[in-house]
């Protein structure tokens, strides 16, 4: 095999670069909200991480510069609605870093994917804010005012439109939500897909998790769809909507909380795909990636034990 001599911080930087395309597409459709969320998230993350490193008497500079905390912040910031109020991302990222990472002992020791832990925490605690998605491009000023509640939201983005979002996006109407955002979400997914291909190409992630993840989604959704064509979402919608590509290439591939053996990674990715379709179809939440990833994180120690490679001479 050919090798890239790399460092952990270099790898983290590459993942952040690979996210850029998807973020740009998201910006193209929904405007400055996502940028604000990322800025807020990264600042909070660095502050919280530094504070905890100081409490734990660790070297702050070297830990921050490994880039992992910035990556976590970006992943969470792009997972939540871009028009969520400012405190949502601050609460979420603080929870992710304190309970998802630092309390386990920092980078490399956490059982759960911190970004997804923060996401699920927000989803359960603030369901309204977490399911109010933008449908229009927001200028910088508009986004600023929406996110910081500076003025009456109605005056800026129009009462009818916001009402429309709120009305159409109740928790139970998951299919409806997916349908509404079809073109823009498909393009965003494409953006993350190509970012993921870049990571594969640079050998920062291996193919095992993303491929088995997508195969899991395809097989499960096709089986469901065959069983009742009218009732279930077709396979291509599962692939192109929601956070599928972000999950396949950027979230499930977090090496710390994923299985570490090759066989294990295939099982891990595949089952995440299966669980996602099950949650999307039968669950109460619009998307199931975070839950699926967290559930599978729990099984990683077990998967790792039973998928050890064959040792030479044994």
């Amino acid at each position: 095999m050919t090798l890239i001599l790399s460092s952990t911080s270099w790898m983290m930087r590459q993942v952040i670069y690979a996210l850029a395309l998807g973020i740009f597409v998201s910006y193209y459709f929904f405007g400055w909200g996502i940028v604000l969320q990322i800025v807020l998230g990264v600042i909070t993350a660095v502050v919280v991480e530094s504070a905890f490193l100081a409490l734990r008497r660790r070297d702050i500079i070297s830990s921050i510069s490994d880039g992992s905390v910035i990556l976590t912040a970006i992943l969470l910031a792009i997972s939540i609605p871009s028009i969520a109020p400012w405190w949502v991302i601050i609460v979420g990222i603080s929870f992710a870093i304190i309970f998802g990472k630092q309390l386990y002992g920092g980078l490399g020791n956490n059982l759960f994917n911190p970004a997804m832990l923060g996401y699920v925490f927000l989803l359960i605690s603030y369901p309204l804010q977490m399911s109010t998605w933008s449908i229009n491009f927001l200028s910088f000023n508009q986004a600023l005012e929406v996110v910081f509640n500076l003025s009456n939201i109605d005056a800026i983005s129009g009462a009818t439109k916001l009402d429309e979002i709120k009305n159409s996006l109740s928790l139970s109407s998951s299919i409806q939500q997916l349908e509404i955002h079809f073109p823009s979400q498909a393009w965003i997914n494409a953006g993350f897909f190509f970012g993921g291909v870049y990571l594969l190409f640079r050998k920062i992630i291996s193919w095992h998790i993303p491929v088995s993840f997508l195969v899991g989604i395809v097989i499960t959704s096709v089986l469901l769809w065959i069983s009742n064509v009218d009732l279930y979402i077709p396979m291509q919608n599962h692939i192109m909507l929601g956070g599928t590509m972000l999950g396949a290439f950027f979230i499930a591939t977090d090496p710390v909380s994923a299985s570490t053996t090759l066989k294990g990674r295939i099982i891990y990715g595949f089952l995440i795909g299966v669980i996602i379709v099950i949650i999307r179809t039968f669950g109460g939440y619009p998307d199931g990636i975070a839950f699926a990833v967290l559930l599978m994180n729990m099984t990683v120690p077990l998967i790792d034990i039973y998928t050890q490679p064959k040792v030479f001479g044994k």
């Binding site: 090798l3 053996t261 790792d304």
Partner: peptide, 25 residues
């Protein structure tokens, strides 16, 4: 000397191990 960072279980070590061990574990 390069700074030693935390293991992120990326698994590159087990890919190159000629014996098939899991160095990260």
């Amino acid at each position: 000397k390069p700074i030693i960072q935390e293991c992120i279980r990326c698994g590159q070590c087990s890919e190159v191990c000629p014996i098939g061990l899991l160095p990260q574990q």
